[in-house]
Amino acid sequence: MRDWAVRFAFGAGVSALAGMVSVLAGPRAGGLFLAFPAILLASVTLVAKEEGVRQAGQDVAGATFGTVGLIGFAVVVALTVTDWPLWLSLAIATLTWAALSLALYAAVARLRL
């Protein structure tokens, strides 16, 4: 239960940080923090405490694939949000994130076999 509270706190905290930066310095500066590694930081420290640093390293390795997907997510939103309905733009961007991340994960896993 405590782990979930920590994750919620990190998520709320980084979202609030992005929101404050957006208010103070504009939405482009706030957008930088939409891909801030806070959630990974929370996860890594929790996993390291419970399962060791080696497992935490596996978390980081997996997150690398997710970050490439995040670049794809942001590019798709930028390309489509002015022309498409918001829900469609975000849905396609999320699918792009999943497809890129999981394809990279599968490709690297296959190379390691």
Binding site: P37, V53, V81
Partner: peptide, 29 residues
């Protein structure tokens, strides 16, 4: 929507930084 577009442009940069963060963090851990 204009602010969503600007946020997405900023996020592209943040996500690139996140990728490099992961590549550097693994050996540092």
């Amino acid at each position: 929507v204009p602010d969503v577009l600007a946020s997405a442009r900023g996020m592209q940069i943040g996500a690139l930084g996140f990728t490099l963060y992961c590549l550097i963090a693994a050996p540092l851990l």
